[in-house]
Amino acid sequence: MDVIRLQEKFALIDEHWRPKVAGRLNGQEVKLVKVQGVFPWHSHADADEIFLVHRSRFRVEFRDHIADMGPGEFVLVPRGVEHRTAADEEAEVLMFEPTGVVNTGNVQDAVFTAPNGIEI
């Protein structure tokens, strides 16, 4: 029941595209991730995701539109919807998703697939 200070937690992250668990509740994980560049196209058959921007600009690209966001804005990606994420400059993002969701969904990628359950 300690206060989680996002700025302090993000300062502990020194790599891109490697989500870290900052909290758990009701079978969900709150993950923090620093991003820059473009992530691979993928989908999650059994999980919805929320991306909430903490710092900088971040976008979620869908095949038919782009959700471009700044701090304090979020987008919900429904399960099964193909998407990719991107940021032109380093961004800090909170992700909310069920425990155990692989960040690359239905795609295995040597560069982008991150280990699950790493806590900060």
Rank of each mutant, 00 (worst) to 15 (best):
L52K: 09
V93C: 14
W17I: 00
I50V: 12
V101F: 13
H44R: 08
D88I: 08
H65K: 03
S43D: 14
V3M: 12
I13P: 01
D68V: 06
E97L: 15
V111R: 14
A110L: 11
P19M: 05
L52W: 14
H42Y: 11
P98W: 07
I4T: 15
V111N: 14
R24H: 10
L32Q: 03
D88W: 02
D64W: 04
A22L: 03
N106F: 05
E82L: 04
H42W: 10
N103K: 08
E89V: 04
A67K: 06
E49C: 02
V75Q: 04
T85K: 02
E61Y: 11
V107E: 00
H16E: 02
L25Q: 13
D48R: 01
K31H: 11
M1R: 12
Q28G: 03
E73C: 08
T85D: 10
T113L: 04
V93N: 06
A110T: 08
M1Y: 10
Q28Y: 07
G105C: 03
E61R: 01
A110M: 09
F10E: 04
R57V: 11
F39E: 06
L94W: 06
V93A: 08
I50P: 03
L32K: 00
L6G: 07
E82A: 08
W41E: 00
E119F: 14
V101R: 03
E49I: 02
D88P: 07
D109I: 04
E8T: 11
R57K: 14
A22P: 00
F96E: 13
L52M: 14
P78H: 04
H16F: 05
D48L: 02
L12A: 13
D109C: 00
R63F: 07
G100Y: 13
L6A: 15
G72W: 10
A47C: 12
Q108L: 09
A114T: 06
F112T: 07
Q108T: 11
A11I: 04
I118T: 15
F51D: 01
D64T: 09
G105E: 06
G117H: 15
E92F: 09
I13L: 07
G23F: 06
M1V: 12
V53Y: 00
D68T: 03
G70P: 04
R5H: 15
R57S: 11
A110V: 09
V111P: 13
M95Q: 14
